[in-house]
Amino acid sequence: MEPNTRILIIYSTFGEGHVQAANAIKQQFISQGIQQIYMLDLMAEAHPYWNAVTRYCYLTSSALCPSLYGLSYNWSNRLEPDRMFNRWLHSFGKRKLREVIRRVQPDAVIHTFPYLAAEQLGLEMASPLPTFTVITDYVLHSRWVHPNTKHYFVATESLKCELIGAGVNGKRISVTGIPIRAAFENSFQQEDLFGKYKLDPSKKYVLIVAGAFGVLAHVRKLAAAILEDTDYDLILVCGRNQRLANRMAAQYGSHSRIHIFGYVNQLEELMGLSSCMLTKAGGITLTEALSMALPVIVYRPLPGQEKGNADRLSEAGAIQIADHVREVTNRLNQLQQPYHLQRMLHAMKSLYKSEAARSVASEVLQFTYSYAHGNQAYPTLSERKAIQTHGYP
């Protein structure tokens, strides 16, 4: 290990998951003695106006017109990774990235979002940097694939198989799991937390997480049905949707069985007090639930990567999907039966890989050490062009 190693982590604020994965990896580098970690929200830095517009469109379309977002996702997924559209997307921010690389002089670049500018820039450099991609979903989209990526870190063996099917050499893929904050893997005293949040330890709680931006559909209908048709109490996290929080407080503010929160920094504490979580199907959120063995019901997963995540984990028996409010309450009541609960917990345990962030950081350091000492040669420019044309060796 070289203590002067510099790492550049490129992320995006299109959803909280990519940021959290980047921060989890950063903390693991620091714990391993690497202090020079540089975080870059490339789109926000290079094109702040375009970043704000596209981010707004993403959040709006996923909330108000999910079918349109799903069509866009599926269309772009059918494109080959080296098609002009994907190359154009990956080229966003190259000029800014060039400036950052010149200033920071990193030994490696890690992407946690599928705008792979460092990989695209590497095709134009005589001596490119080793670039790594951490896929933060349980399904593959073509935008995650780039011929200049040195190594991929993925959640599951099935996702590794998808990458191999896309032409990536299996030696370039590590099944590490998805990086999450270390807090989710730490133990804590439930008794203290029940007191902190003024909750009753004799009750069973359903945690409804509307997402960081509060876009889970039909929250009020779900809350009413759960309170009426089950004996669970509710913990509702509204994220940054203050309008939702205000509406729910106005309707249920005096109700003894529902507890309303806005954005929560220490969500792991509320998860640790809950018997089940009702949430969106973001890759990070699902991984956090797996880490805590917290049963999950995904309500009406959004088309695109969230539906892919939900379908993949549901097929493995690790979560449940509900498309109707009545189905939610039926599944909640079903989870009170020991057989169904134990079957889900077993599937969750078999799927979850602990300490993913540590594994990613350790492997990146091993690669960079090998490059620094000449044990591995990065492909030449002509070799990388050949990879782009003919596929991976």
Rank of each mutant, 00 (worst) to 15 (best):
E2C: 09
I7Q: 02
H18I: 03
A24Y: 07
M39A: 09
L42C: 05
P48T: 01
Y49R: 11
N51C: 02
A52K: 11
Y58S: 05
S61D: 00
S62Y: 03
N74G: 04
F85G: 00
K94M: 14
R95L: 15
R95H: 13
D107G: 05
V109N: 01
A117M: 02
L121V: 03
G122S: 15
L123Q: 12
S127F: 13
T131H: 05
V134Y: 02
T136V: 07
D137E: 04
S142I: 11
H151C: 09
F153N: 06
A155R: 04
E157A: 10
P179C: 00
E185W: 04
Q189F: 13
Q189V: 11
E191Y: 02
D192N: 09
F194K: 03
A212H: 04
V219W: 02
I226M: 05
D229E: 13
D231E: 15
V237W: 04
G239I: 08
G239Q: 06
M248R: 12
Q251L: 13
Y252H: 07
I258P: 02
N265G: 13
N265C: 08
Q266P: 01
E268Y: 15
L270M: 06
L273D: 03
S274P: 09
S274C: 07
L286Y: 10
E288A: 08
V298N: 00
R300T: 03
P303F: 04
D311Y: 08
S314F: 04
A322D: 00
R326D: 14
V328L: 02
T329Y: 01
Q337Y: 09
M348T: 06
L351F: 09
A356Y: 09
R358F: 14
S359G: 06
S362H: 11
Y371H: 12
R384V: 08
I387F: 12
G391R: 08
